[in-house]
Structure formats: C-alpha cells, structure tokens
Design a protein around this nucleic acid. Structure first.
Length: 477
RNA sequence: UCCUCAGUAGCUCAGUUGGUUAGAGCACCUGACUGUUAAUCAGGGAGUCGUUGGUUCGAGCCCAACCUGAGGAGCCA
C-alpha cells in the first residue's frame, strides 16, 4: 500500500471512498486532529480521529515527526481550514518519534539551525517546497533540450585533463596517504596511482562536451561539478550541478538567444507546475522582507519577479557599452564604488554588475564581447584582436547565473593562446584534434543549477537549495 | 583568504556602569478539553552563558587567542 498520495485526496479524487494514507505527523491538536504530510504536496491532510476508539498507547504515540498509517473515509471537512479530511478510527503507528528528542517543532526555525539538521529539514514546509521545485526544474531542463533535439551527454566526473582552467581542483587518488610513493626528485609519483596519472574531480564538462557537439551538433551536459576554492559566500558551493549546452554552427548571438529562451522556459515551467510551492515561498520571502529596513527591501515579490523575467526581453550590451555607462554612473562619479571604473579593460566587480542589473536597467542583462585578457583561453578572439566572443547573463540578487562563449575553432589561433598561458599542447592533444579534423564554429554556456533554483525559490543562501551542501569545512551527512 | 557582526535552556531571544540564587516566549512533560488550524487553559522540569587562558575581591558582561555561524568582498557558476 502507500499508493494513495495526499495530493490526490486533496484534489478530491477519493471523496466518500475509504482509503489508507501514510505519512508523517506535523501536529496533533485537541486529541482529535492530526495534520499529516507525505511530501506529495505542501498541504497537510487533516485526519480526524475518534479517540474513544483508540487505545491510550496509540494515542500517546501520535506525536510530531511520527510516521503513521490512517484508514478512513474521505469527507468534505466540517472545519474551515481545509476542503477535505479523513474520518478515521483506525490508526497504525509505523515509526515512533520521541517528542522530547525530535528537533523539529511546530514553530519557525532559523535556516541556520535547519542546516545543522539537513537530514530532517526536508520535513519542513520550506524545504519540502524547495525539493519539489528543484525536481521540477531538473525535469524541465531535460524536457526543454529533448524537445529541441539536443542530446544529453555524460561527461566524466573524474578527469585526467589538467588544463580546464576553471579553478582549484580536488585530487582523486587511491594512493595510501601515509606512505606516498615518491619520484627521484621528491614529488608524489602519480604513475603508481590508480589511473597511472594525476586525476581530479571535474570543474567543467565543457571540453568533453565540445567533442560531442562536433559530431551530434547540439548536446548538453547536466552533472555534478567540483571546485576546491575557499569560497565562503551565499552563492558558492564546492559541489554543485551545472548544465552546459554546446552547439555546433552557433555564433555568440545564437548562443545568447538560446540562453535567454532556456532560462525563460525554466521560469515559466516553474510558474505553471509549482504554483502551490511558489506561493508559499513567495509568502516566506515577503515575511522575511518585512523584517528588513524599508530601503533594503526588494521592490518586487518573488512571483512578480518570476513573471517579470519570463515576460520581458533581457538587455544585451557589450562590455565596452557597459564601461561607458558605469564610467558616467552616479556612484562612480561620487566615488561610491569600492573599485572605480576609469579604463577600458578593467574586470567588472559584483558592485558594477549589481548596478547595471538592479539600478540602471532593472532587468536581466547579458554582457558580451569582453576583453580577451580577463577571459578563458578557449573563447573566440574577435576581429578587433582585443575582445573575445564571451557572454555573461546577470540576474538580480544572484549576479552571474550563466557564463558562455563562442569557442575558438581556428587551430592556429587556439594553439597560440594555449602557448601564451603556458599550458602544454600535449595535455590538450585530444581537444586540439577537434580543430584539426572538421572544425566548425560552435558555442556553449554553463548554467549554475543551484543559482537558478536560488532565483526561482527566492532563497538567499545557496546552501538552502541543495539537499546536502558541500562548502569549506562542511561535509557532514 | 580578507573585512564586519554574532555565539546565553531543545528553538528564538532579553540580561542595566562588572556585584546575591541567570530570565521570557515557544517547544517538551503532567492535567483539563470531541471541530481544532503554529488550538486554548492550569501546573512542572530544563543552563559547563562557544572553548581556553587572562584582568579583578568578584566576569554572561572587560582583554587575548582559537572554534563555529551569518552578512559583505575576492574567485566564479
């Protein structure tokens, strides 16, 4: 049993029928009303018990957190708070929960406290909603690409490529750390390791994804990604999930078109399929905003902002245009920026991106054609010889949600850039092969999945949108 | 990694210029209650004041180091 979900009962499918429901007790009031939740939806089902029909032992074990089965008839509720309820005289305690020790109480808990009990926080309204929205977005990612004819490619999680250049990596090793084999010059001898060479957890599936795009035309990856950077912010994780589409015969503008359409699709999908959970999260955010001083509050609520993003064109402007705007912006002239903008070529800081998105345009912004000097080696050099065909999608609140580029498909230009940054050609022999045999213009981008979930759920800290966050100093559970 | 702030009961917090036995709400326990909605009412238990060291007759309060958390910055997705 356990096939009947509370969601279906609340939809009215089982009115006047006898059913068995199973779930976890949220509250038990007046010795009579159980609020039962099975995770199928946000709303609890009210179980009305005839306590004279139950023995005292069973009654005592109906406590917050306990799992139970209840058998009874679905009826229209006599009370005001809900449409349906179950009248029952048959309760089975499946798993008891000592109320003195169970950490979740029917009251508000801080997100910081719930992070310490990540194995139980999914039993709260907020995290139940986040898990469900996250699932729907995972599904929407595959649905979108599948319907457009893209193929999902599993790129390796353990990589032997030393040259991805996207940050610090975690070494993967089966060597005995207490007795490390050494070479003659004292270095760790990775030739004695499992793979016969030094290997890492991947920081990006892009380079492998490119090889697939140059055969299947349109592909995407959706997998875990690892960064060993000591980042302690509300927007960074050491283990996160990234979506990386890669498309042959796309230039930078095709790439931006896809990125914008894709993000809007995901936002719309959530609005169409997760309205109950989003309405709850909208209210949660509104309550939280009320605690803040007025000048720090956001103008739009969560739902309003999601609709705004789904319905409006993103602004597109070049790095050069952005520098012009920023140079003449009030905070720059009044020296309010911590980093003042004066020269072309400066890297943009968070405060500048925020100004453009939240103050100047008040909508998502796509910046493109960045100086080559501040971007990765594989990005395609533009005709001006000083900018590359790179683009970043910037969102209010969370900043960079997508980073992408048209890739350098010209063998000679690519080899020059690889040499210039000091990577050995032989380490990328397989990547360079794609430029030697049937190379083609192609483009792609990376979307940080948790940042997207953050935006759609309105959660301020990225550690609250992944079930078990991995951050510096934290790998509990 | 840097800057700022915080750490007191299971949770959220108050705690006066350093001064007797450290408080509240919620939660929990006991009792009452057959239409409650974070139920309500009466009573009860509950603390190594983050850790270590120091100043002092006396430290939850002052000083130092460390640990943990949050916000911001850098790196980025």
């Amino acid at each position: 049993m356990g096939k009947i979900k509370i969601k279906d009962i609340l939809n009215g499918k089982y009115l006047q029928q006898e059913v068995t429901v199973k779930g976890w007790v949220r509250t038990f009031r007046s010795n009579r009303f159980i609020a039962l939740n099975d995770g199928s939806c946000l709303t609890n089902l009210q179980i009305v018990v005839d306590f004279e029909a139950l023995d005292e032992q069973t009654l005592k074990q109906i406590t917050t957190g306990a799992s139970i089965a209840a058998r009874g008839v679905v009826v229209e509720s006599l009370g005001k708070g809900q449409a349906y309820e179950i009248q029952t005289s048959e309760i089975e305690i499946i798993g008891v929960s000592d109320p003195e020790k169970y950490p979740l109480q029917p009251k508000k808990h801080s997100l910081e406290f719930l992070r310490e009990i990540a194995h139980l926080r999914v039993r709260t309204n907020t995290f139940g909603a986040i898990y469900r929205v996250r699932h729907n977005l995972i599904y929407a990612v595959h649905k979108y690409f599948h319907e457009k004819g893209f193929f999902n490619v599993h790129t390796p999680i353990i990589t032997g490529s030393d040259a991805e250049g996207a940050g610090e990596m975690f070494t993967v090793s089966a060597l005995d750390l207490d007795h490390l084999p050494r070479t003659d010059d004292g270095q760790v001898d990775f030739s004695a390791d499992f793979f016969g060479k030094h290997t890492n957890l991947t920081v990006s599936g892009q380079l492998e994804g490119e090889t697939a795009a140059l055969a299947l035309t349109e592909i995407y990856t959706f997998g875990p990604t690892f960064r060993a950077e000591n980042s302690n912010t509300s927007r960074h994780l050491a283990e996160f999930w990234m979506i990386e589409p890669e498309m042959a015969f796309y230039d930078l503008h095709d790439n931006m078109d896809l990125a914008e359409e894709f993000v809007k699709y995901l936002v719309s999908f959530a609005l169409e399929n997760c309205m109950d959970d989003l309405t709850f999260l909208n209210q949660r955010l509104a309550d939280e905003e009320k605690q803040k001083p007025q000048h720090q509050r956001q103008e739009m609520g969560l739902l309003a902002q999601l609709r705004f993003v789904a319905d409006n064109e993103f602004v597109r402007l070049t790095y050069t245009e952005a520098i012009d705007i920023l140079r003449n912006a009030k905070p720059n002239k009044k020296k309010k920026f911590a980093y003042l903008i004066d020269e072309w070529g400066a890297d943009l800081q968070s405060e500048h991106e925020r100004y453009l998105v939240e103050k100047h345009f008040k909508k998502p912004v796509i910046l493109y054609n960045y100086p080559a000097s501040i971007k990765a080696f594989y990005m395609r050099l533009n005709q001006d010889g000083k900018t590359v065909a790179a683009m970043d999608v910037l969102f209010p609140g969370i900043g960079e949600i997508i980073g992408g580029s048209q890739r350098e498909e010209r063998y000679d230009v690519l080899v020059e850039k690889i040499k210039a940054i000091g990577i050995a050609e032989k380490d990328l022999w397989w990547y360079l092969d794609t430029r030697r045999f049937g190379t083609a213009p192609h483009s792609g981008f990376g979307l940080g999945f948790e940042r997207l979930v953050q935006f759609i759920t309105g959660m301020g800290n990225i550690r609250d949108v992944i079930p078990f966050p991995r951050t510096p100093g934290n790998a509990e559970f």
